[in-house]
Simulated scan of single mutants.
Amino acid sequence: MRKLLGVTMAVAVGFGAAITVAGPAQAAPAVEITRVYVNSPGTDTSSNKSVNGEYVKLTNRRSTTVSLKNWTVRDKARHVYTFGDVKLKPKASIVLHTGKGTNSATKRYWGRGWHVWNNTGDTAYLRNSTGKQIDSCSWKKVESYKNC
């Protein structure tokens, strides 16, 4: 039996078979961009309703609270939103609207008067307080939103 096993291994190696050991899986980020609503309903206007039709949804995938203080969301054109003292509870989501509004535990408002996300293609970047990129979501032309 031992001799047969040795012959089998030798044949496998002789034919170029590779024996690999799986490495550790890449850890998913604690907070992910889960959706970008890039094309608000209707014609793009400077009305707050139209601008707030755009948003980025972030989701905490961990079982612990994550502080988003000084984290940023930005696009390719370097429009940047910086979070204040915001804590995202385990498995919870927060929506960042492009326009103006009243912040809450589940909604934040960028305060812009015009749209940020390009309907024809763009990238949303999420960076932590040290500037390290945590996640990104890219799209080409989409109807309304991109699930990431």
Rank of each mutant, 00 (worst) to 15 (best):
F15D: 11
G16V: 08
A17E: 03
A17K: 04
A18H: 11
A18E: 12
A18I: 13
A18F: 12
I19E: 01
T20C: 11
V21L: 00
V21N: 00
A22K: 13
G23R: 08
G23S: 12
A25H: 05
A25F: 09
Q26P: 11
Q26I: 14
A27D: 02
A27Q: 06
A28S: 14
A28D: 10
A28R: 13
A28Y: 04
P29R: 09
P29N: 12
P29S: 09
A30F: 03
A30L: 08
A30K: 05
A30R: 07
V31K: 05
V31A: 10
V31H: 02
E32S: 15
E32W: 01
E32V: 15
E32P: 08
I33K: 08
I33F: 07
T34S: 13
T34F: 03
T34G: 07
T34N: 08
T34W: 01
R35L: 01
V36L: 02
V36W: 00
V36I: 11
V36N: 03
Y37S: 15
Y37T: 14
V38S: 07
V38R: 00
V38N: 05
N39M: 12
S40G: 11
S40H: 04
P41N: 07
P41K: 12
G42H: 00
T43G: 04
T43C: 02
T43F: 06
T45L: 03
T45W: 02
T45F: 06
S46R: 08
S46G: 11
S46W: 08
S47W: 01
S47A: 11
K49V: 15
K49E: 15
K49T: 15
S50D: 03
V51D: 10
V51P: 00
V51Q: 01
N52A: 10
G53C: 05
G53D: 07
E54W: 00
E54M: 02
Y55A: 00
K57N: 13
K57T: 15
L58Y: 06
L58N: 06
T59S: 13
N60Q: 09
N60I: 14
R61S: 06
R62V: 14
S63D: 15
S63R: 15
V66C: 09
S67N: 12
S67V: 01
S67D: 07
L68C: 05
K69N: 13
N70T: 02
N70M: 03
N70K: 03
W71G: 04
W71Q: 03
W71L: 01
T72K: 11
T72M: 06
R74G: 01
D75R: 07
K76S: 08
A77M: 07
H79T: 06
T82M: 08
T82L: 02
F83C: 03
G84S: 10
G84L: 02
G84E: 08
G84N: 06
D85Y: 07
D85N: 07
D85H: 07
D85K: 04
V86M: 10
V86E: 05
V86P: 01
K87R: 14
L88D: 00
L88C: 00
L88K: 04
L88A: 09
K89C: 12
K89V: 15
K89L: 14
K89N: 15
A92Q: 14
S93H: 09
I94Y: 08
I94V: 15
V95Q: 08
V95H: 02
V95C: 02
L96N: 04
L96I: 14
L96V: 13
H97P: 08
H97F: 10
H97T: 07
H97R: 13
T98A: 12
T98G: 06
